[in-house]
Structures are given as C-alpha cells and as structure tokens.
Design a protein around this nucleic acid. Structure first.
Length: 460
RNA sequence: GUCCCCAUCGUCUAGUCUGGUCCAGGACACAGGCCUUUCACGCCUGCAACACCGGUUCAAAUCCGGUUGGGGACGCCA
C-alpha cells in the first residue's frame, strides 16, 4: 500500500489538510505501507516556496513523517506534457482554441437556463492543431456510467453525460490538476487515494483519465469535510484554521493530532489516543461518512489533558518561548519546571500558562484593586504582618507551611481561607492562583518578603 | 439551477453492514454536589438525541422508498 498527501503550496497547512494527511499517514503505517508527500505546485501564480516550507514544518511538528523525499509536481511537467500528447495521438484528446471569455459566457448562459454550466465541446471534432493560447482537452465518453466503490462512502455512480471535456494541458504548457494528479498517482504507484470530500466530483473524470492512459485504478476514499460552528465549511472567519496558528496559541501537537483523529474516526468509546497507538488501531471502517463540526472546546480539553501529562521539566521548556513572547525574562530550567508544575493543572494552552506565570516573573505583581479593597484592610494587613513573621523562620521548623496556616488560623480564630487570601493577594496580585505554598517555594524568601512589605505599604 | 454526498444529545461520536441484549452508551460543553488555603484538577450526579412521513417485519436507530434539511462540486485553482 502506498498513500500520499498532496497539498498545494498556496497557503499554510490547514486543519482539514492536516486531518487528510493524518489519515493517509495512519492508513499507510497500519498496513506497513509507504506514505509519500507530493507538493502540487502547478499553479505558478499562487504557489510559494515559503508555503512548502511551512507545510513541511507543520507535518514534522505533528509527527507525520513521510517516506522518501517530497515530490514536486512542477518538476514533472515534461511527463505530464508527454502523456497529454500521447492522449492526443490516441485520439482521446484534442486541441481547443476557444477563448476563455466565450466559454465563460456560455457557462453563464447555461446557468441562467437552469442547466449545468459545462463546456459544449465545440472544438471536439474539429481536428485542430497547436495554437498560441490553445489548450488540450480530454475527449470524454458521451454516454455510459462511471463509478467506483468508495473506501468510505461505498458505491458512487456518475452519468458520463454529466461530465464535460476537461482541459488537461493549459495554454502555458502546464497540466491542470486532474491531469497532473492522475499521471503522478499512476506513475508513483499510489494504491489508495484518500482525500477530502470536495474531490468526489473529480473522481469520475480521473477514472476516465486512468482508463484512457491505460493505468490501473487505485482505491479512492473521500473523507467528510470539517465544518465551522455554523455548519459552513471551515474557513478563516471561524477563527484559526492553520496548524501553525494552533502551535502559536500554545496547543500541543499530541492534542491536535488526537482531536483531528477523533473528528471522523472512532475506536469505541476511547477518547485519548497517541499517534503510535493509532497506527495500530486505525481503519477506514471506523471512519464516519458525515461532515463534522470543529469544536474548539474539546480541543482545549485534550490540550489540557496533554499539558497535565507532560513532565514539568519538559513543560517548562515548552513554556519558555511563550514567556519570552510576553516580554518576560525567561528563568533557568529549574525554576521553569517549578513554575510549570504549579500551572500544569490550571492551563488549557501554553499561552494561557504563560499569562498565568507572569506574576512569578515580575518585580512586584499588579494587585487587583477590587480585591485589595476587600482584603488589604487594616485587619488584612495585620494578617500579612503575622505571615511575615512566621515565614521568617524556615518552614521545616514549624511543621511546614500547612502547619503554619493551621497555627495562624487557630491563633486568629479565623478560617484558613480568610488567613490565606491576603497573603495570596500580596504574593500573586490575585485571589486565584496556584497553591499558596507552591508559590512561596517558587518565589523564594526574598521575593516573598518584598511582596508582603509592598502589600502592607499599599495605600488604600 | 444541475449533479454528488450526508443525516443519533448543542458538539464529537458508539450502536446501523450481521433488525430484538438500546425507554439508545461514551466524551466535550453546561448545571448541581463532593474535595479544598483561592482558582483549578479530580470524583459523583443531572440535563440532553435516533430529522420527518410511509413501507417491510412478530420486532426498526438499524432494511427499503419518499420528503425535508445540511454539505460539496460545477475553472486554462487545487
């Protein structure tokens, strides 16, 4: 089995493309086959090398390793031209001199009359030769049926009469999509073509091309689309759609891969899957047939799960760039790990974690005014003074911080919460934070003393 | 408009092929509770769906037909 992922370098790798790549990867790995990459750069206008780099980078980040070197379609244009010429020689293709404007006009007419906008085949039997601005069209059958058994959707049949004579070689000498895909898939020995639902309508044309070229047909499988919350095709207006954007927002590749896999594929009730595990479990029979709505909340949940699962040391390393992006001084690995450990169970993304880590890394935290009014009263400052006193003694000497809190609570005849909150506010600037004693540990004695003093000195 | 595809909780889905074990299971989200130095985490509980109509059958979420709804395609883009 040989599968492939064939993105066009006209943009970054998006969510839908990533899922297509993932399923192709999984299918090949499951069957001990090959998974190859082909860059479809035949659109000279829109293809950009930096997008190729970006797509490759995104694939690597996701862990979707491909076999061999990526194939660039443009480098194969000679082969495409050669096959187009062969089709011409066989009488399965013809030169067309129609002007694009005329064709467009007839399409509009057809649409206005309630029909399908198609090329009318007026050059089909004219026996024209090459000409500047001319194109080569495939001479398709006028009747009969074209069908296949889709790997995912089952039997699909089209009437040949629904199909018009598609352009296979453009006037610039480059092949069109359908031609290039068929020639390359056949030439590269692709056995299973797994791609987006939006290609279902191309498939009968491609089958006809395979047959005319005398090439064996691969299996075709069409994956349902990914939709936005309004059930329209996922697009920019639904928020981030590129894989790299998710990376920048602080999502872990494991989370994205896991989420994308579950969007359309299932294995009983299981929700959590690692890539390696899926390589053993994946199967097309468990891929759904209906379109799926992209649900950011569930991605968040998975991301939180993988963040919690990442050891603090590694997590600290992942967090560092997000800290730097906020303009914060990045501490050493040890402190980073400690910080990560305290935030691990309270962050959905690395970006959120960095925001929550900010108070650790500034000289003095910004105290929330509303909370200050409530907690830094004369009484609250009194409690802070007691804390300052108690914390001056090494914690081991009085049964740890927990014992300290209990002791103070008993002394002041106040609930532990009431005793803890002023200190939390002084240390973190907020009434919600990681565990107080973890914060004290990360901050160290000097910073703790400085923050308490600053809070006590704070004007009402 | 024409053609193609799809249809289970708000969302992702199990169950559909091989009809009964499903007054439909899991997960996210949401609500309530427990835990608790705050916020979280975790745990428990709850809310919530077989699009509709007809047929086949002793029996239909599961099979068949239709309707409705949604998506996709209709380029010298891919």
């Amino acid at each position: 089995m040989i599968t492939r992922f064939a993105p066009s370098p006209t943009g970054h790798l998006h969510i839908g493309g990533a899922r297509t790549a993932l399923f192709n990867y999984l299918l090949a790995r499951r069957e001990n086959g090959r998974f190859v990459l082909r860059i479809e750069d035949t659109d000279a206008q829109r293809s950009r090398p930096e997008y190729t780099e970006s797509i490759l980078g995104a694939m690597e980040w996701l862990g979707l390793s491909w076999d061999g070197e990526p194939v660039f379609q443009r480098a194969r244009a000679d082969l495409h031209r050669q096959r187009a010429q062969w089709l011409l020689d066989q009488g399965r293709a013809y030169w067309c001199h129609c002007r694009p404007e005329d064709i467009e006009a007839s399409r509009q007419r057809a649409l206005a009359e309630g029909g399908k906008p198609r090329y009318d085949g007026r050059c089909r039997d004219l026996g024209l030769g090459p000409a500047p601005g001319g194109v080569i069209r495939f001479k398709g059958p006028l009747d009969g049926q074209v069908g296949w058994t889709d790997l995912i959707k089952g039997p699909i049949v089209f009437e040949a009469s629904e199909l018009d004579d598609l352009v296979i070689l453009r006037s610039d000498g480059l092949p069109t999509y359908n031609m290039a895909v068929v020639v390359d898939d056949a030439d590269m020995g692709i056995t299973d073509v797994l791609r987006g639902d939006d290609h279902v309508n191309n498939t009968p044309r491609q089958i006809l091309l395979y047959q005319a070229l005398g090439a064996p047909l691969p299996n075709f499988g069409h994956l349902p689309m990914i939709l936005g919350s309004d059930k329209a095709r996922l697009s920019k207006r639904h928020g981030a759609t590129s894989v790299m954007a998710y990376r920048e927002m602080g999502y872990l590749p494991q989370a994205l891969v896991n989420y994308l896999a579950r969007l359309g594929w299932s294995h009983g009730d299981q929700e959590i899957f690692g890539l390696a595990e899926m390589e053993g479990l994946f199967g097309l029979r468990n891929v759904g047939r209906s379109a799926a709505v992209f649900n950011p909340e569930k991605l968040d949940w998975l991301n939180a799960h993988y963040i919690k699962e990442t050891p603090p040391g590694a997590l600290g390393g992942l967090l560092a760039p997000f800290l730097a992006a906020r303009g914060l001084a990045v501490p050493g690995p040890e402190v980073l790990a400690k910080i990560a450990a305290t935030l691990r169970e309270r962050s959905k993304t690395l970006a959120e974690m960095a925001a929550k880590a900010e108070f650790y890394l500034v000289g003095l935290p910004a105290i929330d005014p509303a909370s200050a009014k409530k907690l830094l009263t004369a009484e609250g400052k009194g409690i802070l003074a007691r804390w300052r006193e108690a914390l001056a003694v090494p914690p081991g000497d009085h049964g740890g911080f927990e014992g300290l809190l209990r002791g103070l609570s008993a002394d002041l005849a106040a609930k532990p919460g009431a005793v803890a909150q002023p200190l939390r506010l002084a240390l973190t600037g907020s009434t919600a934070s990681p565990g107080l004693f973890e914060v004290i540990d990360v901050l160290g004695p000097e910073a703790v003393a400085r923050r308490i003093a600053a809070a006590i000195a704070l004007e009402p």
